[in-house]
Every structure is written in C-alpha cells, then in structure tokens.
Design a binder for these strands. Sequence first.
DNA 1: GGTTGACCTCAAGTTGACTTGAAGTGGCAG
DNA 2: CTGCCACTTCAAGTCAACTTGAGGTCAACC
Lengths: 134, 134
Amino acid sequence: MNLLDIGAVSRHSGIPPSTLRYYEEIGLIQSVGRHGLRRQFDTPVLTQLALISLGKLAGFSLDDIKGMFAGDGSPQLPRPELHQRADMLDQQIKGLTRLRDALRHVADCPAETHMDCPKFKRLMEFASRTANRR
Amino acid sequence: MNLLDIGAVSRHSGIPPSTLRYYEEIGLIQSVGRHGLRRQFDTPVLTQLALISLGKLAGFSLDDIKGMFAGDGSPQLPRPELHQRADMLDQQIKGLTRLRDALRHVADCPAETHMDCPKFKRLMEFASRTANRR
DNA sequence: GGTTGACCTCAAGTTGACTTGAAGTGGCAG
DNA sequence: CTGCCACTTCAAGTCAACTTGAGGTCAACC
C-alpha cells in the first residue's frame, strides 16, 4: 500500500499539517488510518488537494468544493450543475482577462491620465458590466 | 456637478451602503462632501467600484487593490509591478480554465469512473502542477 | 531504554471583509 | 411645522478559513 503520513502529504502538496487536519475535520479529505497517532493518507489525496486548491483559486468556498467532489475526490454532481459551475467560471475568466488587459494596458499606455484614454475607458465599461455578483 | 449620494451609488453599483462606508473608512474610495449628513460621491466612483469588484474577483485583497489604484481610481503602480500582477492573473486564468475544462469534461464524459479517464487524469496532472501559491 | 521530533487533541485566537444594532440627525413632502 | 425616512456614528458581532498554544503521545534511532 502506498500510504503517506501527514508530513509527507504536507511536503508534497505545500499545505501545512494544521490545514490538512482542518480539512479532515470538516470532511473535505479523509485519512485512511493511523500509524501510531499519525494520520495516514492514500496517495490520491494529492490529486484531491490539487483540485481543492484549484477550486479555491476559482473562488469557491470549502463548502462549495465539498459539495462538488465525493469523499474520494471524484466529481459527484448532476451534469447541469457542473455545466452551471463551468459557466460561472467562464464569467470569472472573462472578468480576470479584462482586468489583466486593463493592467497591461496601463502599464504600456503612454497616456498620462488613463481615465481619458479611450481604450482604457472601454475596458472599464466592460468591467462595470461584468463585475459584481458573488 | 454630478454628485450622487450614497443611496444612489449603492443602487448603481449594487454595493450596500454599509460596504461603501466601510470602503471609505479604509481609504479605498473617497466621498467628496456631504449633503446634510449624507455622503456625496462623484460619478467616477462607479468606475472605481467596478475596478474594485474586478480586483476582488481576481482574488486580490482590499489592501492589494488599495495599493494598485490611487484614490481617484487611476492606477498608480510602477510598470514592472503592473506587469507582474498581470502575469499572476495569467497564471490564475490558466488554472481556472483548467478547472473549467475539467468540470465540463466530467459533465460530458460518459466514463463511469473519471479517475480512470485518461483525459481527466491529464487535466488533473496539470492541476497539480499549476495549483497552489497565493 | 532514554531522547527526540514529528505528530496528536482541543480550545482559543486571528484576519479580512463586512454586517448589525442602537441611538441620533436633518432635508423635505404634506 | 411636523413627521418620516434615509441617512449618520460607533461599537460590537459574524463568518470563513485557518493558525497558535498548551500539554500529551509514540515510533524510531542511538
């Protein structure tokens, strides 16, 4: 059996042991046993943690994430809901892309006052329409 | 002068008055005066709030955002830093895109056990490499 | 077989971002 | 001129997501 104790999981995932214990406590991950006192995890937990990090990056709460994946890390949601989540992500990606473009633009645009730059203004109009809601 | 009182700003931006007061308290936005007790804002504050929402969406803290834009909403950062922020956003966008693709894939893939699906596994490997760090 | 060090539990503390509540104010419609 | 109601302040509360600290345990190495 390929078991990792909590320290190894922490080293591989970059997530502190305290957080791993917390995640177990709230039911986000599961340990498969103990070695003495030490929690042992199965290797797939690493995939699960990657998924969790990605989900957090996407702005989902731990509770959301808990709902998305079954205990073993495999996604467990009705298809329409998955598509809905994907659509939400699309919205967010669009917003981020806009913000990135705005940032790059102001980094490169020689205009002294960006608020007067038509390109920047256009970006900001998009922003106003896209932002908000979460 | 095109002044809006806090209620109007709230209505236009979708942000509750309590939050607007809070944003002013921490110096993220500024009111330009009072009408009686009521805060009056200049219309550009709406653009600023859109920017703030976008920044939050991007996962920046209010403090980060405060550092990015001057009080009037115009970006005020050294160019290299702006590019660096934009690069961070690119990373994040890539991660989200991956997550979105993974979500859509499992929504459509007929495989019963996603963890065995090569396409899903490939997505997850990317995920492991990309995730973490914030 | 003693020391070490990485783990353990459980309660309490922290941080960021707000929200809520109590008590007060002031412009304006009637 | 009297209400009303949307605002005001200020302190305290809330929630998620962790982290910290005190005090304890145990497998493994010397």
